[in-house]
């Protein structure tokens, strides 16, 4: 197939390894923070770190950063939709 091989952006071994190291350190951080006492902030912090990790996986491992604009927009809208739906659910649960 003569398909878009020339367009494909090959991410180097090095970049991937750097991302991996980043992910490992964030994991260590989240475990360390869970040991400390931040009260009601714990969940927020844990979710924030998890989202950073997810962002790394999405943009590098899953290649979103180098993808077509269309696919980037699709990914963004799916995620935003999910978040808004969560928010809408908590309009009920948050006001009980």
């Amino acid at each position: 197939m003569s398909h878009s091989n020339d367009e494909v952006h090959i991410v180097s071994y090095g970049t991937h390894t750097m991302v991996y190291i980043g992910l490992l350190s964030l994991t260590a951080l989240t475990v360390a923070i869970a040991g400390g006492n931040f009260g009601s902030l714990t969940l927020l912090i844990a979710m924030f770190i998890a989202t950073c990790k997810a962002g790394l996986v999405l943009s590098y491992f899953m290649h979103v950063k180098f993808e077509d604009r269309v696919i980037q927009m699709m990914v963004a809208s799916a995620i935003i939709l999910l978040i808004v739906a969560y928010g809408m659910s908590f309009i009920d649960y948050g006001t009980r």
Partner: peptide, 30 residues
């Protein structure tokens, strides 16, 4: 020349990882 299938399986595999990234702190660290 032809690695689309492998990339797509890779994407699936990362989603499995992605879900665990959220499962781990929610279940184990709460």
């Amino acid at each position: 020349e032809k690695f689309g299938y492998m990339e797509n399986v890779g994407l699936y595999w990362h989603v499995v990882d992605l879900i665990w990234i959220y499962l781990f702190p929610l279940l184990y660290l709460v």
